[in-house]
């Protein structure tokens, strides 16, 4: 295992992208930072610019208006970067399936830009913060 990958596993900076969610997943993501879950102890940190990010946490169905921006954000993120789809909506548009303003599912939107993107799914409505942490851990141990 190269040092690069090893260091990446120890320090994951995530950028949070909402593509039309109901806010629940987003709040649970922010909740991961707070004392009860405190992901900083694993080296996970939320950053304010996609250029600093190693992983994108995508929530929401992927509306038409958001899809274009999502692709742009994915392009701006330095590679290697993993994409986490958090919540039922992001994983497969969930209850909003088939809406006229829905471009999703999100994984297809991202695959249009990069067919080899690393995509992980964290289902739930909303997934509990524990589930998200376990999702990140699983992806990291799979690298």
């Amino acid at each position: 295992m190269s040092v690069k990958i090893w260091a990446l596993k120890k320090s994951v900076w995530v950028f949070h992208v909402n593509t039309g969610a109901c806010n629940n997943c987003d709040i649970e993501i922010v909740n991961m930072l707070t004392p009860k879950y405190d992901v900083e102890r694993f080296g996970i940190k939320l950053v304010g610019s996609p250029r600093h990010a190693d992983a994108l946490l995508v929530t929401g169905v992927g509306t038409e208006q958001a899809a274009i921006r999502l692709r742009e954000v994915y392009r701006q993120t330095p590679k290697p970067c993993a994409v986490f789809l958090v919540g039922a909506c992001a994983c497969g548009t969930g209850i909003f399936k088939g809406g006229y303003h829905v471009a999703g599912p999100v994984d297809e939107i991202i695959r249009e830009v990069d067919p080899d993107a690393i995509i992980a799914y964290v289902p739930g409505c909303p997934p509990k913060p524990e589930a998200m942490i376990s999702g990140v851990v699983k992806v990291l141990s799979a690298i």
Binding site: T34, D38, R41, G43, D54
Partner: peptide, 15 residues
Amino acid sequence: RVGPPLLQPAYDVMK
């Protein structure tokens, strides 16, 4: 909170 491990800043820079 618990906070990051001792080597965290080093990991960040290396990554």
